[in-house]
Write a protein that binds this DNA or RNA. Structure first.
Lengths: 232, 232
DNA sequence: CTAGAATTCGAACTATGGTTCAAATTTTGA
DNA sequence: TCAAAATTTGAACCATAGTTCGAATTCTAG
């Protein structure tokens, strides 16, 4: 994401001030993510983001070129996270069914946990053509990774044969949709939702039932650690 | 939908002109639906809707109180359609699995066929609180109908036991998501998509295979195995 | 045919929200 | 301590898009 986000850091000052600058950038981005999550993307105004980040509206433009760039970061960060999770699952030594389940669980966590402004990643259309392209590319890469897992399972006979592309989109739709109906004060936890949902989605692939679960680093800390390690 | 949409038809003129008036209303609504579908809801401006419907921007307000009312209609119409399909499936004398498949197929058709502006039904947040309420209510009714079908299937043992509410939301997410990725010039037809998707979604319920087999679910041992270890 | 109603137009109004900017304040580095 | 750089402010700018309005045109009906 750093590649995309090379802000106007041309005339770099001393190291010390640069650190502070980038730290403040991150604070602002987290604040923005919170606002995106609270209200929708459309309803989130610069003035509101500014207030959430404790600075004046105009000052936002000292750190970002505009709203688009802020949104771009949120989307990119979310996709980067999910992509890393998919790659990690791909490498793990568990049945494909469990790999897919892991990816779906991670996706749900990414959507519903408070940390990121992941809901913003659903509204790619909001970006102007220019900025949209790299996001689309990354999103396609993620979808491709999931599809590859599904296809692998089908090829190995672990899943019933079928249209991997269509089924992948169905699964992604189901998990993305959670952002619409999930309420933090609901009956079940995010982990429970992630578990049940991924079980259902993989069952539709015609896989065997999840073996009495033993494998897969499904603890939250493990996932976060794995994901953050990828980020540079 | 007529109840909600009782436009300013207070001082009704002659029957003849009223017919014409309402016909023009429908034309406009269809045009709006087309624009909603083409661009997103956000990008669809009144001026663009006006052009699509072959009248001036200002003239739109002779037929509707504003953009909200137009959007309200599209959402209401779509939901009414889906609700009717759900009710119809409920009454049909086929296995529950096939009932659910029928509802999902209808839902997909409703989303992807050119006739309606169904994509708009996904953006309920765009409406002001006042108008939103009845739409939410109808949407909940539809979701409830689907959930009832799923629960019935579970109760009868035709589906594996599970969280009917969660699974229903997953299914609806998958079908709603089609509006995001479907392209009319794609490889497969809407009907094919609807078929494959509904098959996949119902398969995840632990039902018997679609057409080839009769209503009787698979062997007891298979069902038990499928349900084991998953649920909370 | 003609008066009144219905329809249509398009320019102008207005509210919203992203953005700019010049000046004030704070921080940095020597 | 002081000058230059960095940060911050808040008001103002401006573009978009929903909406209003009065006048012009067309249609209906007696």
């Amino acid at each position: 994401m750093v590649q995309i986000l090379n802000l106007g850091s041309n005339k770099l000052a001393s190291e010390r001030v640069r650190r502070k600058y980038e730290a403040r950038q991150l604070e602002i981005l987290h604040a923005a993510a919170r606002v995106f999550r609270r209200c929708g993307l459309a309803a989130a105004g610069m003035r509101e983001i500014a207030e959430e980040a404790d600075l004046s509206p105009g000052n936002l433009y000292h750190y970002f070129s505009g709203k688009d760039e802020i949104l771009l970061f949120c989307q990119d960060r979310t996709l980067e996270h999910m992509l890393a999770a998919a790659k990690a699952a791909q490498r793990s030594a568990v049945p494909v069914a469990e790999q897919v389940r892991a990816v779906m669980r991670d996706h749900v966590h990414c959507m519903l946990d408070e940390l990121e402004g992941a809901t913003a990643h659903l509204e790619v259309e909001a970006l102007p053509e220019e900025l949209r392209k790299p996001v689309i590319k990354k999103r396609d890469a993620y979808e491709g990774a999931v599809r590859a897992l599904v296809a692998k399972g089908m090829k190995r006979g672990e899943f019933a044969p079928g249209d991997a592309s269509l089924v992948t989109r169905a699964m992604l739709g189901a998990v993305n949709w959670t952002a619409r109906w999930y309420r933090p004060d609901g009956a079940q936890s995010v982990a429970e939702i992630a578990q049940s949902l991924s079980d259902y989605l993989v069952r539709g692939l015609g896989a065997a039932a999840p073996s009495t679960r033993a494998a897969a680093p499904s603890t939250r800390s493990a996932r976060v650690a794995a994901a953050s390690g990828v980020r540079k």
